[in-house]
């Protein structure tokens, strides 16, 4: 009986996260539009787009992997969600987090990427292949400073459980990792720019350059699944950084505010800077973010 109630709460959490993700993507697109001097899309546009995508009558396929690409991607996104404690102190919205969930989540981040690579590869479009090779090489370099930051935190708090990391940061703003371990936070927040894929690191989808990268051949319900997953993943990635560096959230309101500002950080940078080329991007992550990560490790050795 307990597991049923737990599952119901997981679905409730997923529902809230999905809708908040869709609303957040609309807000961010509106912010981008206002920077460009436009009004931008209505706030409800992502939901209409999703309904439309799921209700298209045709959907051709390129083979089995073409089906499995979005499935892998969504299982990557939902997988991170399942092991992520959302609300600190709530036994229901902690989902299925356990002692070593931090390692699992780091792994799941790559899982969706690889699944997408297989699926988009079967689509056969040359731009998909370019997007995938860029995405994998960029994500590999993003992982370096991010992993260093995470190891630094693990050494600092002597745990690999996200719940315990959040618990260690309770009791005032000065207990947040942001202040107790600023170098790890800096390294992670810089690599977050790449993880969210906004400009200047939007080389994977690269609008107007390799229109639109890996999902070039994806359409109708396939694209609907990918967009659903993107909405979940954006919130969950923001929640991961919130848990690790910004003291977690005691209630949904706190989660929404903090995840908004963490996501806003990447949009804020994105509307200011133009796109990097892939070799610039890779080199950028291996310079200052990597240096911050190494310093963070050295401090807590």
């Amino acid at each position: 009986m307990d597991i049923v109630i737990r599952l119901l709460y997981v679905f409730l959490g997923l529902f809230i996260v999905l809708n908040w993700g869709l609303l957040m993507s609309a807000i961010m697109r509106k912010i981008g539009a206002r920077v460009a001097g436009r009004y931008g899309i209505p706030y409800y546009q992502p939901w209409i787009d999703l309904i439309k995508l799921y209700s298209l009558r045709d959907s051709i396929t390129h083979g089995v992997m073409f089906y499995l690409g979005p499935v892998f991607r969504v299982s990557g996104g939902v997988g991170i969600f399942l092991f992520m404690p959302l609300i600190f102190g709530s036994s229901y919205f902690s989902n299925f987090s356990f002692a070593g969930d931090l390692v699992l989540i780091m792994y799941f981040q790559f899982f969706g990427m690889l699944g997408m690579a297989l699926g988009a590869g079967e689509g056969g479009h040359p731009y998909s292949a370019i997007g995938i090779s860029r995405g994998l090489s960029q994500f590999t370099t993003i992982e370096v400073p991010m992993t260093l930051a995470v190891i630094s935190i693990a050494v600092q708090y002597h745990t690999l459980s996200i719940s315990e990391i959040v618990a260690a940061q309770q009791g005032g703003i000065m207990n947040w990792t942001l202040f107790t371990n600023p170098f790890a936070t800096a390294a992670a927040m810089l690599s977050l720019l790449g993880a969210f894929g906004h400009s200047p690191f939007n080389l994977v989808k690269a609008p107007n350059e390799i229109p639109i990268g890996p999902p070039t051949e994806y359409h109708s319900a396939f694209l609907g699944v990918l967009r659903t997953n993107a909405a979940i993943l954006h919130v969950i990635e923001a929640v991961l950084f919130m848990n690790l560096f910004f003291g977690g959230a005691g209630n949904w309101f706190e989660l929404i505010i903090k995840s908004f500002f963490i996501y806003f950080w990447s949009v804020f940078v994105g509307v200011v800077f133009p796109r990097f080329r892939i070799e610039q991007s890779v080199q950028w992550f291996l310079k200052i973010p990597l240096l911050f990560g190494v310093i963070a490790i050295i401090i807590f050795m």
């Binding site: 539009a33 931008g40 899309i41 209409i48 298209l56 609008p207 051949e217 994806y218 359409h219 694209l223």
Partner: peptide, 22 residues
């Protein structure tokens, strides 16, 4: 699609690939 007329207000969005456009 630029500030003067801004068709995004009306749900009109540009897509780069025929698979995704209606």
């Amino acid at each position: 699609v630029t500030p003067r007329f801004d068709a995004y207000r009306f749900g009109v969005q540009m897509r780069p690939t025929p698979r995704q456009s209606n």
